[in-house]
Amino acid sequence: MKYRLFGILVVLFFLAWRTLDGLVEGDWGRLEGGLSNLGVFFRESMWPPNWSVLEARSYPVCEEDIEFFCSVGYLGMMETLKIAFVSTILGFVGAISLSSLAARNLMPIWVAVPVRIFLSAVRSLPSLIWAILFVIVIGFGPLSGVLAMTFYTVGYLGKLQYEVFEGMPNDPLEAGRAMGLSRPSILMNIVIPENGNHLLSQLMFMFEYNVRHGTVIGIVGAGGIGYYISTYLKFLQYDKVFALLILIFIVVVLIDLLSLAVRSFVNEEGDVRKPTWLNMLIQARKQD
């Protein structure tokens, strides 16, 4: 069995290699010097990161006591976080309504299939395309960003949620149905409590995802830190771009830690041992 799995992996790797060769049309010469080009670009344009992005902007005049709160980095990141937060919550509410209609164990197939097709359609447009659409419809600014991310969140979370619902044990659903609980009551009192851990975990994942993608949609004018990245790229100020990228990286790591902390309070492990910062960072061992 072990050798067969290894064999399959080798064949898949070979196939991927052949496909890549086809894509570059055999012209591997393009890669020549790529690494040294990257090195030169990094040394001459990006390094050292320009931390002036964390200082107050020259206009409008800063009225805060601490300069940092008027900086491009802070203002951009806060706007991105706000967009991500609002769209994750709105998207979660929309997704849970639709995913409960899309799960085959909760709804008849003639309801589930059209809702699934709708969710697939919403999901098939990346958040960037949604952002472009909303920028065209309602103009530049964070509202376009919020709507774009909300739509994408509905499509993405909706799929994750109906798959979790379909994987739950059938007996609580059957007991609820036989007892005469209504469909909304089954959703609120059986399905959501039974899958609470998964839903929370997906919610945290989606928030982190939306923060990361918030930077991308800002590039098309939908608000957030991406707007500043896009501006600096246009003026070839790569050192400032690099500083903002480091800032995004730090925020994503912090969200990931927060997500681990929240989830460790509700998972099975939480029954026997409350999490510490150490066992959140290092995968917790089962208590002997």
């Binding site: 007892m179 005469g180 039974e194």
Partner: peptide
């Protein structure tokens, strides 16, 4: 409504609640 009670073989409890 709700005049029928049912306890399935696997009890049908919401384990996380």
């Amino acid at each position: 409504r709700g005049g029928l009670g049912y306890i399935p073989q696997r009890l049908g409890l919401v384990r996380h609640a």
